[in-house]
């Protein structure tokens, strides 16, 4: 069985339907990229998968031993306030909170997990720094490390490279790719970067008037892709 199975899912806010007919599944080890225009409902889909928003219709089934709180995520725009005093390590550590039952304080193992993920993201030298004083790319790495502390199974990334320069973007993609390939982390990534989607993903979900879900090869042959390609920005 798959980690996630969505059947005839309809999304929206306050019972008002925004988009419907979403069918897809995510197996362990997959790298799924979700594409679609601005406002098409990609972030809404992500919030629904995370259980922050109820689906208008249909359901998302979890399987293969994936528990509800084993989905880590990287938000699109950080609603995190500009002046919040928090060190990198405090933030990454907070990701370990729900592993196991209620513990008021972090265990030695939690701290080890946090330090490992800080190192994996290459931000050890920033561990004591204040989050709000970091650059956008560094902040993304901190939040990715936090997500990795919450789970090693499934990560949802909402436009993880938005606003990053080309160098940092490439680094970020490489990091995510190695998480998927070397550590077996299943990735669902929202992106506007179709070229990168085609490069890294094995499955693509295109949200819009016509919803498409399939493997990368199927997507390249699909009408959804033809239309974008015709629009001119991809060869």
């Amino acid at each position: 069985m798959a980690y996630l199975t969505c059947r005839d899912l309809a999304l929206g806010y306050d019972g008002r339907e925004l988009i419907s007919g979403i069918d897809f599944e995510v197996d362990p080890g997959d790298y799924l990229v979700v594409v679609g225009e601005n406002g098409s409902g990609k972030s809404t889909l992500m919030k629904t998968i995370l259980g922050l928003l109820p689906p208008v219709r249909g359901a998302i089934a979890r399987g293969d031993g994936l528990l509800k709180n084993e989905i880590g995520y990287l938000p699109q725009q950080t609603t995190i306030q500009k002046d919040f005093p928090a060190s990198v390590r405090e933030i990454v550590l907070s990701g370990t909170q729900n592993r196991g039952g209620f513990r008021p304080f972090y265990s030695r193992e939690d701290k080890k997990t946090a330090d490992e993920n800080i190192e994996k993201m290459g931000i050890s030298h920033l561990a004591k720094r204040c989050y709000r004083e970091l650059s956008g790319g560094q902040q993304q790495r901190v939040l990715l490390a936090r997500a990795l502390c919450a789970t090693r199974k499934l990560l949802l990334l909402d436009e993880p490279v938005a606003g990053l320069d080309p160098m940092v973007t490439a680094e970020m993609y490489a990091l995510i790719e190695s998480l998927n390939r070397d550590d077996g982390v299943t990735i669902i990534m929202i992106s506007h970067d179709i070229a990168a989607a085609i490069k890294y993903a094995d499955h693509i979900l295109h949200i819009g008037e016509r919803v498409f879900f399939g493997t990368k090869a199927e997507y390249l042959a699909s009408e959804n892709y033809m239309r974008i390609a015709k629009a001119g920005d991809i060869e």
């Binding site: 919030k47 995370l50 259980g51 922050l52 509800k68 709180n69 989905i71 880590g72 995520y73 938000p75 950080t78 609603t79 995190i80 919040f84 928090a86 405090e90 933030i91 550590l93 907070s94 990701g95 909170q97 729900n98 008021p104 304080f105 972090y106 936090r146 997500a147 919450a150 789970t151």
Partner: peptide, 23 residues
């Protein structure tokens, strides 16, 4: 405050993430 210090931190810092990961 002491017992729930870490939860209070994560709920204050990023409520959506805390909620999504089971807090």
């Amino acid at each position: 405050f002491v017992v729930f210090y870490n939860r209070i931190f994560s709920v204050t810092f990023d409520e959506d993430f805390a909620r999504a990961t089971g807090t």
